[in-house]
Design a protein around this nucleic acid. Structure first.
Lengths: 211, 211, 211, 211
DNA sequence: ACTTAACCGAGACGGTACGTCGAGTCTTTCT
DNA sequence: AGAAAGACTCGACGTACCGTCTCGGTTAAGT
């Protein structure tokens, strides 16, 4: 917690890059939880002081590294709404179950709680892709029978949230789920139950009748 | 990493209760991340060994404490579907933004990743409430124009996920959002945009036109 | 610190032997310092309680194990005083640098300090060998020009102490030293300096002139 | 077990002094056996890490503390050989039965076994006093009828060892013993038996006739 | 021969200390 | 003058044993 923040103009570019690279590398290898400032400094060939000078907390370091080193963008629009929405859902599944962000975000949650700045940094980074995707959903929903503008942002969060939540609880995303969400958004149609049950009652009508 | 797990019959009831109480207390006070086995043992008036004997990892300790000390249940059914679904969404908002679970779950995510057992413990605990709520949603969706059984489990995860995701990113849940999700589930109607914008484009059509 | 000492008649012979064997075995393998009651009990296939019941402290356990499991005796007398004394010194060197006693005794020193009973146990055990050796020295010294009885006990302790002390400080015992001590005792002749020096000035005249 | 030992020049003087003082203090109060690194760090107001950084084992910590905080020196020479030797023996009795070294050395023996460095540290520390005393004994023996240089180092170890050994076995040093050792060294005369026996046969002819 | 009290194995318990790791701060050295 | 290097205090980690304490289940002494 530096009372007097350092002068950004005097920042050493080489150190900055090395630290960002080291952070991304360690995030990939060990994840956010097991990421240590100590290891970042060591791998970057930099003193711990230098890291702490610019990033007072671990969460800010990780947030910035993700923002400057990981490319994310909106899914491209093909013109066909259903395909586009399906692609968006699939991209989300990837982003929240396989990508670097997927592994890092849940772990960062608590630290983000305490750090408004880092949260903003992340949200700003997600912004452009989000805007593009929101626009896509807006187009999709525009074709639905509903009248007036829709809250595409909520739809987007709905997709992300659903995928993330299932991931946390250990439920793998299935093709069925992708279709269900796509149909819900494009057609306003509630998800149909799969024809076969699975052992734990997640995503299946089976547990309704069984219980 | 006990090769031979100890015999549960020889467990000391007093210690067990004290440890569970201490864990819940500390989860409430400092959260999962800052929870330490050391502090749990100290508060419970118990040797660290005793904690480690029965719960080899922090995440199992927390998972069990939540399961045995925190009551959760399905929302009661009033007969009116819209009211019931709204109540369910509101309960979810509470559970994932204000309750003890809310504060703990995001932090536990990574550890849960590595610990199938703890994840199962949690899911089993959530099970009964989940079943009740799934049944409620099944009834709700049964009234929608769609034909055949619906995947109520997905709808439930959708609600939980959306609320949780917004919470992680620092978006407070609003009454508007509650209504939007209720309408989506009961009526199959996509969320309407709110009439006024907010500065970051979450939950508002504004950012679509502005960007 | 048993208020009511247990009834020796009911002692389980099998356990007793197993404990003694385990203690000796562990003394040989890891030494007194790293000997743990836990390990003794485990190796003996015996409850910790059983060990603590009969030997309230580690030092008593070790002292008894040495006494009942390690044979020591006086060196045999050949009739030739010089040979006998030399044999005694050599036996002492062995006892205090290579035998089990050698490894255990220095470590037990502190604990013996606090436990009069264990010390007595050890001394009683050493007694017979000691008596025989004292008698041998008495004969030896009787041939020296001094008149009257000599304090053979002191001579014996002198031999033991010198060897032990050098062992503690890491000085290996040499043949020269054996000869020197023999000559001192048999002839009352002070030790001659060796003709060559060694690097640390122990046992050599060199450091006198060099310093 | 530091692969790369830290740079001594960067050592914090205040911490160093505090640790040495704390170590000496605790050695005096509880002895080496019950000395814990934890307690040293706490008393010194220092992190445990700092202690472990510079002294990887307890025995090195104790060895250095003795070396830098406890003054030892050769006994002063008065010119009269018999007095000097008697003073030397008395000083040895003090050193090995009452001084801090006395209480610590036997306990340290095992650990010294495993740690060549610590042993060297101790021997180096004892060195100057040793040299002085060796020189004194050299003078003493020079007056004996023996021809040529004597091994004064052995004589010195003989004194130390005898006193230490009797101390370990719980035999208090007596004035008689001091005289006996003095006579042995100065006159080459074997120890005379005391006129009265004691109960355990140490230092007395009694056990010879009794056994 | 039959009680019955004590010993037995097993191992959980509250503790102390271990030696390690990393966080975040502070100091020294070098360029 | 500022960055690297890294020593510092602090706190938690997970482990090993300590010595005490229940547990049932033998086992052997003394009716």
């Amino acid at each position: 917690v530096n009372a007097v923040p350092p002068d950004p103009r005097r920042r050493n570019t080489r150190s900055y890059d090395a630290i960002m690279d080291a952070t991304i590398g360690l995030l990939e290898e060990v994840g956010y939880q097991r990421l240590s400032v100590e290891a970042v400094a060591a791998r970057a060939g930099v003193g711990k002081t230098t890291v702490y000078r610019w990033w007072p907390t671990k969460v800010r370091l990780a947030a910035e590294a993700l923002a400057v080193r990981v490319e994310i963008g909106p899914v491209p629009s093909s013109g066909d709404l259903r395909s586009d929405v399906r692609a968006l859902v699939e991209a989300t599944v990837y982003a929240f179950t396989k990508s670097l962000l997927a592994r890092a975000l849940p772990d960062m949650a608590t630290d983000l709680d305490d750090d408004e700045y880092a949260r903003t940094r992340l949200v700003d980074w997600l912004g452009p892709a989000r805007s593009g995707n929101v626009r896509l959903l807006f187009g999709a929903a525009g074709h639905s029978p509903s009248v007036g503008p829709i809250d595409a942002g909520l739809l987007l969060d709905l997709i992300c949230g659903t995928v993330l939540y299932r991931h946390i609880l250990g439920r793998a995303a299935s093709d069925t789920m992708v279709e269900q969400l796509t149909a819900l958004i494009v057609d306003g149609r509630p998800p149909r139950a799969a024809s076969t049950g699975n052992r734990d009652g997640f995503g299946d009508i089976a547990d309704l009748t069984a219980t």
